[in-house]
Design a binder for these strands. Sequence first.
DNA 1: AACGATTTGTTCGTATGTATC
DNA 2: TGATACATACGAACAAATCGT
Lengths: 269, 269
Amino acid sequence: MAEPMYRIIADDLDRRIKIGELQPGAQLPSEIELREEYGQGTAKASRNTVRDAIKLLVTRGLVETRPGQGTFVVKKVLPFVSRLATDPEAGGIEDGVYKDEVGKRGRTPDETRPRVEVQPADPTVAGELGLTGDEQVISRHQERRIDGTPWSMQTTFYPMKFVERGATNLLMAENIAEGMVKYLEEKLNIKQVGWRDTITARTPTGNERTFFTLSDKVQVAIIEFRRTSYDETGVPIRHTVTVYPADRNQFEMEAGAVPARPEKNHEAK
Amino acid sequence: MAEPMYRIIADDLDRRIKIGELQPGAQLPSEIELREEYGQGTAKASRNTVRDAIKLLVTRGLVETRPGQGTFVVKKVLPFVSRLATDPEAGGIEDGVYKDEVGKRGRTPDETRPRVEVQPADPTVAGELGLTGDEQVISRHQERRIDGTPWSMQTTFYPMKFVERGATNLLMAENIAEGMVKYLEEKLNIKQVGWRDTITARTPTGNERTFFTLSDKVQVAIIEFRRTSYDETGVPIRHTVTVYPADRNQFEMEAGAVPARPEKNHEAK
DNA sequence: AACGATTTGTTCGTATGTATC
DNA sequence: TGATACATACGAACAAATCGT
C-alpha cells in the first residue's frame, strides 16, 4: 500500500473537482456515502479515513465543510484588484499602501475610525523608523471592508517625537481630512518624497482569522505589505503595515506604456 | 467545554512557541508525553486528541513532524529579496519578472535550460495575448534555484505567429544570450515598451509542491506574478507566469527618493 | 415550537505500519 | 535488532448544527 487510502480518496475527489464533475458550490457526497464509494470490495472505508481525505482537500483549499449541512466545493470570490502606485505623488495623496478605486467600480468601501494607541515600538518597527531601544510610537489602526466584506487591516506607526513637535492630530481617533502627508508637511515641514515596500505572504494570525472570518480550517494566505516612507533627508517618517486575505485580493502594477485594461472576465477557474 | 480539547492543547503550544519557551528548531514533547501534560486530573488525553492538536499547528505553519524523530518548531529560512523593477528599461534587460541580484549577494543562482513546448493557449493566456479561440502558443519554462534550493518557476508564452514571422529561436531550448526582448526587436522589430503585473497568492499545486519540496502538510503559500508585456502599439507580446514559495521569498519595491537599505537583520521572529 | 433525521465535529480506544536512531 | 516516534486505519459513541415536518 504505497499510497495511503485517505490520500487516494482525496486525490480522486480532487480530480473530480478539477475535471468539473463537481462544480464550485456543489455538495460532495456525505461522509457515509463516501464510505461506500471508496470501499474495498464489499468492505466500506472507515468514516475517519474519509474524514482524513476531506481534511486534506480542505487544506488544499478545494472544499469547505459546514456542520449540519455537508461538504462543498469552494466558490472563488470576485477579487478586488488594487493598483500599486509607483509614483510618489499619486501614492502619497491617498495615505494608503495602494491607490484604490473602490467607488469607481460600484463597490461601497467602508473604513473604521482609526484606533490610536501609544506603545513601545517592537524591534521591527523600531528598526524601520530608526529608533533606538524601546522608544514609544503612535500606532493608528484601521479596518476596511468592501460591500460589507472584511478586506484589509492597516496599522501605521509614527515616531512619538512628532507629537512633541506639535503634530498633535496624530493622536486623534479621526481620519485627517487633508491626509496625513499634507498634515505633516504643514505642521512639521516634513515632506514625504519616497517609500520602500516589502511584500510577503504568510499564514494568518488568530486576530486576522477573526476579522477576515477565515475558519480555522480554510487555507487562505495573508499578503502583507510593509511600507516605510522617507523625507527629503532620507529620514524615515512612518511605517505602515497592511494585510490582505489572498482569497479576495489581487494586486496590479504597471510599468512603461500599457494599454488600458479591457473589461475583464472574472469567472472562477 | 466550549473550546474542544485539541484546540486548547494547540493554542497552549502555540502560546509556548510565541513566547519563546519553544524556540525554532526545538523538539516538542512526544505525543505520549503530551498525553500526560494535557490530561484532566489523573486521566490522560487520548493520543488521537493530541495528534489533532499537532495537526492544527502544522496547518498553521508553526511545527513540522518527522516520522521516527519527533515534532519540531519550524525554523524560518533566510528569505531571498527580489526588487521589483518599475522602470521598463531596467526590467526588460533581465528577461524575468524581477531584477535580481543573486550573485551580488554571495548566493549562487542556477537556472535550468528552458523546456520549450508548443501548445494550445489556455483561456487566460489567450485572453492576455489577445488570441481568439484555441491558437497555438510557444511556452518556455524554466526552474530556478539559489544555493541549490528551489526558488521559483517561470513560464513565458509567446504567440505562435512570431515564429512564422521569423523568430525561430523562440523554439530553441537554450537561453538567448542577448535576451528575448532584444532578440524580438532585432528579428521582428517589436519593441517592448511596458508591462502589467498581476500579483496573487494561493495554495500550491501538486507540481509546485514537488519542485519546491513542500510536504503535503506544511502550509506554504505560493506567490504568483503574471506579467503581460506590450509593444509600442499596445499589442501584447508575451505573457509570463512566475511562481515563488512564500516561505523563502520576499519582494521589495521603491518609489521616489529612498535611502539605501542598511545591512538588515534577518533573524527569525 | 418541538421533534426527528441528517451531517459534520469531537473524543476515545486499539491495532498495525513505517521511519529513525 | 530493539526502542521510540510519528502515520495510517478502523470502530464506536456522543455532541452540535441544520433543515424539514
